[in-house]
């Protein structure tokens, strides 16, 4: 009898533990570069951020080739000359939420994430401001930040300084749900 009871608690415990992992069911990452000659915008829907609510760890991998541009030529140049997607296929973002959030309570929370952004093979310590929205079992995260592309060793030839901004604005919006092991 005791045995059965203990097994049940163990199982219950383990399921509640695994529910602490959340994975994005959809995620949109956009970047925007505004310059005198042209605006460049791209959208990536392939990333799957993962959140561990027990530790506050949040991580995502972003496939560079999955950025879709309005002009196919821009996309080719982005991959070939700037992001160098063959050499650096993905960017990673690994951080920890600084605030203590009650993940069981619905609501909107301001949060900051401190961590590392690895882009174009160059890692930078960053802090991101964002908003976490909890609604039932769904968690929505959104953040906006700028990347100074020179920080990541991405060079823009002097001929194109009027086409490509030094700082690009990145927005991330993701809806996460409890991760179920398949």
């Amino acid at each position: 009898m005791k045995n059965i009871f203990l097994s049940f608690t163990a199982i219950a415990l383990s399921t509640s533990m695994s529910a602490q992992i959340y994975m994005a069911k959809n995620c949109e990452i956009t970047f925007f570069s505004e310059s005198p000659l042209e605006n460049i915008e791209a959208i990536n829907k392939a990333a799957k951020p993962i959140l561990n609510t027990s530790t506050g760890d949040i991580q995502t991998k972003i496939a560079m080739a999955a950025f879709v541009f309005e002009k196919p030529l821009m996309q080719e140049h982005f991959n070939e000359n700037y992001a160098e997607s063959e050499k650096f296929p993905s960017a990673t973002l690994k951080g920890k939420i600084n605030e203590v959030i009650d993940w069981t309570k619905d609501g909107e929370y301001k949060a900051t994430v401190t961590g590392k952004l690895n882009l174009h093979g160059v890692e930078k310590d960053r802090t991101f401001d964002g908003i976490v929205t909890i609604k039932g079992s769904e968690i929505t995260i959104s953040t906006k930040f700028t990347i100074h592309i020179a920080d990541h060793d991405i060079k823009v030839p002097s001929l194109y300084v009027k086409n490509i901004a030094e700082d690009v604005e990145v927005k991330l919006n993701a809806t996460l749900e409890p991760y179920k092991k398949k």
Binding site: S14, M17, Q20, I21, I50, N52, Q59, T60, K61, T92
Partner: peptide, 15 residues
């Protein structure tokens, strides 16, 4: 132990 292993895992390897 399985929980511990899970929690310590790099989240991206899960991905």
């Amino acid at each position: 132990s399985s929980i511990n292993a899970f929690a310590q895992e790099d989240l991206l390897s899960l991905l």
